[in-house]
Simulated assay, not measured.
Amino acid sequence: MPEPVVHIEGVQELARDVVVIPNRQVQLVPNIGIIGGGHSVLVVETGMGPRNAEKVLEFAADFAKGRKLYLTTTHFHPEHAFGAQVFAGGATFLVNREQAEDLKVKGPGYLEMFKGLGEPVARQLEGVELAEPDVVFDQEYDLDLGGRMVQLRATGRAHSKGDQVVKVPDADVLFTGDLAEAGQFAIFPWFPPYDTDVSGTRWLAVMQRLAAEGARVVVPGHGEVGGPQLLADVRDYLELLRDETWVRRDSAVSEQTIVEEISALMIQRHPEWAGQEWIEKGVGCLCSEHPA
Score class of each variant (00 low, 15 high):
L57F: 03
I21E: 01
L103D: 02
V41L: 02
L241V: 08
E13H: 13
H222N: 12
L42K: 06
V18N: 00
A88G: 09
E289P: 03
A232G: 00
A61L: 12
F114M: 13
L28K: 14
P78K: 10
P169R: 12
M48G: 00
D62S: 14
D172M: 11
W203H: 12
G107R: 08
V217H: 00
V128A: 01
L69S: 00
G284E: 07
P50S: 11
E54R: 15
G147V: 08
V218S: 01
V19S: 01
E98G: 03
N96M: 05
E224F: 03
D102R: 03
Q268H: 13
L117H: 11
V26C: 09
A212S: 10
T73N: 11
V128Q: 02
L179G: 09
A205W: 03
G275V: 10
D233G: 05
G38R: 09
V29K: 03
P271E: 12
Q184T: 11
K55P: 02
L94D: 00
Q276G: 10
G223C: 09
V26T: 15
W273C: 06
R24L: 14
S254M: 06
D138N: 11
Y194V: 14
V135P: 06
Y110R: 07
E289C: 02
K167S: 08
V234D: 07
R242N: 04
V56F: 03
E213F: 04
L69Y: 00
P133W: 05
V26I: 15
V165H: 05
Y110F: 15
F63W: 09
G275W: 02
L231P: 00
G83M: 04
L179R: 11
Q27M: 13
E239V: 08
F188S: 12
E255V: 15
A60W: 00
P220Q: 10
V165M: 07
M207I: 12
E101K: 15
P220M: 09
S199W: 02
A158D: 10
E98I: 07
E213A: 14
G66K: 07
F137K: 11
V218H: 02
G177E: 06
V247R: 15
V18K: 00
E255P: 06
D142W: 15
P4S: 07
F82Y: 14
L204K: 04
L42A: 06
G275N: 08
C285G: 07
R248C: 04
G223F: 01
F63C: 05
E112L: 15
G107M: 11
F185S: 08
Q12T: 12
D250N: 14
P228C: 09
A205T: 13
A88H: 11
E3T: 14
A186F: 08
A211E: 06
F63E: 02
P193V: 13
M266K: 01
Y237W: 14
G10C: 07
V41H: 01
G89V: 11
R242V: 09
D250M: 12
F82S: 02
E119G: 07
I279H: 01
C287I: 13
D138A: 13
L57Q: 05
Q99L: 15
L69W: 00
A53D: 03
D170N: 10
V19I: 10
F87Y: 13
E58V: 06
M149N: 10
E13K: 14
V135R: 13
W278I: 08
E126C: 08
Q12I: 14
G223L: 05
